[in-house]
Computed example of a mutant assay.
Amino acid sequence: MGENAGRRDRRGQIGRLGEDVAAEYISGLGWQVLARNWRTRYGELDLIAADGRTLIIVEVKTRASRTFVDPVAAVTPQKLRTMRLVTRQWLAEQSEFWPVIRFDIVSIRLDIGDPEDLERATIAHHRGIVE
């Protein structure tokens, strides 16, 4: 396995761990997780959740490095545009009407020495990042 493939595998593993932590966190808030990793050819929504009649689209950013103080810094304006586009696609397939739609970011920092030690993970929840 080449060095780049090893990095991609680690990045994928870190991303999955972070999404697991975020899904558990969201469930702990009493929200219902409606979908995970919903994909179209235009992009992916990490988590789609409901809090009563509010639909929350959650971008999960996970790091097990010191690249960013808060992984939310990795969310670009282009990523936000893609989230809105893909959300419209998801909504077009749904029969339920959502009077309120909100976009959040949940950023997860895993321990750099032992990313699988989820007890040491830190979570930052950024609510309402896109109207």
Rank of each mutant, 00 (worst) to 15 (best):
M1S: 13
E3L: 12
E3R: 09
N4C: 04
A5P: 00
G6V: 04
G6S: 05
R7M: 11
Q13P: 00
G15P: 01
G15Q: 07
R16W: 11
R16M: 06
D20I: 08
V21C: 01
A22L: 02
I26Q: 08
G28N: 04
R36L: 08
N37E: 13
L47T: 05
A49K: 05
A50K: 09
D51G: 11
V58S: 13
V60L: 11
V60N: 07
T62I: 07
R63K: 13
R63V: 04
A64L: 02
A64G: 02
S65L: 01
S65N: 04
T67C: 04
V69N: 10
V69M: 11
D70G: 08
P71Y: 12
V72P: 00
A74Q: 10
K79V: 08
L80K: 15
T87C: 12
R88E: 11
R88D: 12
L91R: 12
Q94G: 07
S95F: 10
E96P: 00
F97M: 10
I101K: 05
F103M: 00
D104Q: 03
D104M: 03
I108E: 03
P115T: 02
E119M: 06
R120K: 15
T122H: 09
T122N: 11
I123Y: 01
R127T: 08
G128W: 02
